[in-house]
């Protein structure tokens, strides 16, 4: 069944058992929404020098958006910023590939499970929500933006 190419077991596992969920101490916080469907995420990044020591998040949304945040946490926490940005760009490229790319498992690990999602234009934004939030939060952290109180 075609759906299985979207809802890979890896995605459903991350959805049901998210990694790193919950808001913790951070250097910057952002709140992003997907206005077409109401997916929301609040995300914080914590940096130690050039190393991303934590990405914490709270959100609500579909399995794709929630699993994607969990995978992001797995992939990026502990990485140097430059490498994290390369992974983000690789994921963005995969999601914009309309099903044409399979993704490099060396770089993207579990995130290659989202390749099938890239065939569904309405769902690409769900998969990218947390990644765009991370990019925004990291930029703010680097700019020295003060952390906001969570609601």
């Amino acid at each position: 069944m075609k759906l299985d190419s979207m809802y890979q077991d890896i995605i459903l596992d991350h959805y049901k058992h998210p990694h790193g969920r919950g808001l913790r101490d951070g250097d910057a916080e952002v709140h992003h929404v997907n206005p077409t469907c109401g997916d929301e995420i609040t995300l914080r990044v914590k940096l130690d020098g050039n190393v991303l020591t934590d990405v914490s998040y709270e959100g609500q949304g579909c399995s794709i958006s929630q699993a994607s945040a969990s995978v992001l946490n797995d992939l990026l926490v502990g990485k140097e910023l430059g490498e994290a940005q390369q992974i983000q760009e690789a994921f963005l490229e995969l999601m914009q590939s309309k099903g044409q790319l399979e993704g490099d498992e060396e770089v993207l690990e579990d995130a290659i499970a989202f390749a099938g999602v890239s065939k569904y234009p309405a769902r690409v934004k769900c998969a990218l929500l947390s990644w765009m939030a991370w990019k925004d939060a990291t930029a703010q952290a680097l700019a020295g933006a003060p952390v906001k109180e969570s609601a």
Binding site: M1, K2, L3, M6, Y7, C37, D39, Q60, G61, C62, S63, I64, Q66, Y120, R123, C126
Partner: peptide, 12 residues
């Protein structure tokens, strides 16, 4: 179950 997921599986 998020409505997006409901809609996607129904669409299938």
């Amino acid at each position: 179950i998020h409505p997006h997921d409901v809609g996607q599986v129904l669409d299938e």
